[in-house]
Write a protein that binds this DNA or RNA. Sequence first.
DNA 1: CTGAAAGCGCTTACAG
DNA 2: CTGAAAGCGCTTACAG
Lengths: 333, 333
Amino acid sequence: MKGKTIKDVASYAGVSISTVSRVLNGYQNVNPEVKALVLEAVEAVGYTPNALARGLRSQSTKTIGLIVNNILNPIYSVLSHAIENTARKYGYHVFLCNSGANPEYELEYLESLYEKKVDGIIIAPTGRNKEKMEAFVNYGIPIVQVDRRIEGIETDSILTNNEQGAYDLVTHMLNQGYSSIGLIVGIQSVTTGMDRMTGYYNALSDKGLTPQTEHIKVGHFDEETGYKAMNELLDLPNPPRAIFAGNNLMAMGGIKAIHERGLRIPDDIAFGMFDDPDWAQLHNPAITAVRQHTQQIGVEAAEQLIYRLKHPEDRSGPRHRVIDSELVIRNST
Amino acid sequence: MKGKTIKDVASYAGVSISTVSRVLNGYQNVNPEVKALVLEAVEAVGYTPNALARGLRSQSTKTIGLIVNNILNPIYSVLSHAIENTARKYGYHVFLCNSGANPEYELEYLESLYEKKVDGIIIAPTGRNKEKMEAFVNYGIPIVQVDRRIEGIETDSILTNNEQGAYDLVTHMLNQGYSSIGLIVGIQSVTTGMDRMTGYYNALSDKGLTPQTEHIKVGHFDEETGYKAMNELLDLPNPPRAIFAGNNLMAMGGIKAIHERGLRIPDDIAFGMFDDPDWAQLHNPAITAVRQHTQQIGVEAAEQLIYRLKHPEDRSGPRHRVIDSELVIRNST
DNA sequence: CTGAAAGCGCTTACAG
DNA sequence: CTGAAAGCGCTTACAG
């Protein structure tokens, strides 16, 4: 069964395909009666446009690519959801790609999105494909970086204020009287890792404290690393009195390690985390958390990209948005 | 800056575009020397294929559409992740769409996927767009239903054995001595809702018990409904002694209601749930849960769809897979 | 083994 | 206001 084309509509309505196209695209210069005739024909024939043909010819697909790091991380689910919803409102469709924090997959996806002629891209970059991203920019395909950011590249970006979030949490812990604080955080090649580490450092040094190397565990932003790192910290001759976990997945792994040892929070070990997933407040005791405004970031990222798509004449430089996070103090600290 | 085309490659290599196309598509009947020349030209020119043009001409886009109910539900994150990964292995790209359980959005997405000429579709259907789904089947675009299923439609499907899962959990609760069991479950217009309810009924009647109407709360599979339903049950003059929550979101809402009232699990009220998200085992006490093999379902759904795409000659009828879930007994029951 | 030509289904100047 | 024609970038019979 073959799909109906503009040609079928044209012959049914007794007009040319140009006229059908004009009606379909809502151009004003069409006789109202002819327009009605065409619309009727569309119904009668059961016509649906072919987006491939339209995109090939018009050089616009009304499609945007979204590359996230790890769709299993609730932060990215929320982000994807917000972006997709916002895009739909403006008539755009989202190609969701999951790089799994793997630069090779990320590269594959970037190439694939280029071949599919997406109008623009929103990406939480691994940091390893800067040249490819620059190629997009050079081709006039706008990019918005979210969640994390590669420096020295001419794209918009919108992220959480990671440094401030980490600073607030660690300062709060210090004020609670915990003087030795361990850090479990992800790789330092991305801004999320770097900035959260910086916030931790600054909070300590503002209190005149020097971070102890053995209290800092750097790995990946995943559960396995969190679990392992927590065990390493707790195995120390002088383990820290409090722990700051750098994201929700690391926190999950860390908490499991604490549970396994039968340690009590906060009596034996205080615990705070970046991100505020549902389980943070459900946990007993409820976990002190740095809440990101992920929903807002998603909405703004989509709107920013769509603005660029609709206003190619606006040659203003990159716009970098940083959104403060919120410290939610609970009973774990 | 304009993209390079097959034409640029051809003129650089001094051959026709037909030959370039043959090389690009890996046809055998090309002189090895010419082939090398073309490949060299591709590099030199910096050529990337245009998927729109290719798709328009070849009637295949190597793209599949995935419509899920609610990407914020971890079940669907896992499902999407598994499907996307599997698809990539076979050279397919996934268009992820989130219907938000809204039939209108679902319809929009179905239409959009049709216009984009996806090769096939994987869908967790709302149940309200049966005709549209049938249209796809009639057009020769295969559909695989996941997680839930519309009856009487000629598509493959793969789901959890919802009835068995619910039956196992409720039977376990009864065996623990809880004789009155409340049910919080989603709408009955989809198989997940129906089958979990049926499992609940059968478990009770197999013990010679009759379900009490006031102990059954039917709503949507979301947190709000779970919270509200739990409160209604607990406000009953004779509240049930144990509660079965129909999915992880309802369970989250239900648990929050229990916490708010300061009730202890399982001493004041026993609690079990469908789905086994991370927080179920983290909770204190850990929650008894029905674990779905979601990862496996995703992989098999993608493989089944791709099988259909690669074997259009196989005219065998729909294949319906049902995968048993697993009861994980913890301390909440 | 290779090339010229047709055509996938549209949009977009160009005439009139 | 409308139509005929070109062309977006490919693949695919058809010749040779």
